[in-house]
């Protein structure tokens, strides 16, 4: 135990990884949960990949000297927010299919755009673009941690302040508007703040892990649990445990911590479905037992009553 603590204290990269894992678990339990409630889990993937396209634009503008001040992170944030706004616009009427299509189109555009620009970017920067796709939680920089922490604090603050509104928008957009709530403003606020968090998390750990951590635990918990609060808590635990498992395992065997975390998080969804199905079976068994209880009570009662009549 003391060895482990010493190891953590001695290695700043491990400290950053642990803090990063903690922050991303918070992002997953707030943004991820609400996006799953809203039927918009796919937007996570759209915003994460848009961040990659935006970062590519940043590297291109810097490398060519067109706009040296345009940091790739600015591009990533800008593109992710753009995708979330387009998605939000398509979904204002509350139709999920339209939002899915909007995300799909933005996703395709950002990725094509990124690959297009890669031909004009110095090869060492191309590697840094790929890091947006498959990042490594053990390679986080201080900047990653600070920016992610700042966004997470804002995200949590907004979620606590407007959690009810976000739930109302997800449950009954039309009714919320008719009762005088500015549902559109909350709809966009939630999407934009989620996009910012997703973009920074993507820079930190890569789009693929962000998608796995943000969506699978929330979807799994939503299948099984029966209150909003318990879903949020469960997502935090699943996300954090997957990441910690990934980090720990990477010290024992030669594996990518992100890959392990992604696999475990994804498996949580399958586990969730399994638990739900098992529970339904139990429900059926109980129903059968109950029916059996009622049926014998009818049949055995017949002979005595006959007996009674014969007298």
């Amino acid at each position: 135990m003391i060895d482990l603590l010493m190891l953590i204290l001695d290695s700043p990269f491990l400290q950053r990884a642990l803090v990063g894992a903690f922050l991303i678990a918070i992002v997953a339990s707030s943004s991820g949960t609400f996006l799953v409630f809203r039927g918009l889990s796919f937007m996570t993937s759209g915003a994460a990949h848009a961040a990659l396209g935006g970062a590519a634009l940043g590297f291109y503008l810097q490398a060519t000297g067109i706009a040296p001040w345009f940091d790739p992170v600015i591009g990533a944030l800008l593109f992710a927010v753009l995708v979330s706004v387009v998605t939000g616009y398509a979904g204002e009427s509350g139709i999920a299919e339209k939002m899915e299509v909007a995300v799909g189109v933005s996703f395709a555009f950002s990725m094509s755009f990124a690959v297009f620009l890669m031909y004009y970017i110095p090869s060492q920067d191309v590697l840094r673009i790929w890091a947006y796709l498959v990042g490594d939680i053990l390679l986080l920089t201080d900047f990653d941690i600070i920016s992610l922490a700042a966004t997470t604090v804002i995200l949590v603050f907004i979620m606590i302040l407007f959690g009810k509104e976000f739930i109302y928008v997800s449950v009954d957009m039309e009714g919320s508007i008719a009762h005088g709530m500015n549902a559109r403003a909350y709809h966009y606020l939630m999407l934009i703040i989620s996009a910012l968090a997703i973009a920074l998390a993507t820079k930190a750990v890569g789009a693929i892990l962000v998608y796995a951590i943000m969506v699978a635990p929330a979807a799994a918990s939503n299948e099984v649990l029966r209150s909003v609060r318990s879903v949020i808590l469960a997502v935090f635990c699943i996300a954090l445990l997957s990441e910690l498992a990934g980090i720990s395992l990477s010290f024992i065997i030669r594996v990518s911590p992100s890959a392990v975390a992604g696999v475990i998080a994804s498996l949580s969804y399958i586990a969730g479905l399994y638990v739900k199905r098992a529970r339904q079976h139990v429900g059926l068994d109980e129903l059968e037992k109950e029916l059996e209880k009622h049926q014998p009570s009818l049949t055995p009662s017949m002979p005595p009553s006959n007996h009674h009549h014969s007298h």
């Binding site: 409630f37 997800s170 009954d172 008719a178 649990l225």
Partner: peptide
């Protein structure tokens, strides 16, 4: 909207949220 209490059609309520 201040004076109205509205009940939308039932299928307009999203059942994805465990409220």
């Amino acid at each position: 909207r201040k004076i109205v209490r509205y009940v939308p059609q039932r299928d307009h309520i999203e059942l994805n949220v465990p409220m």
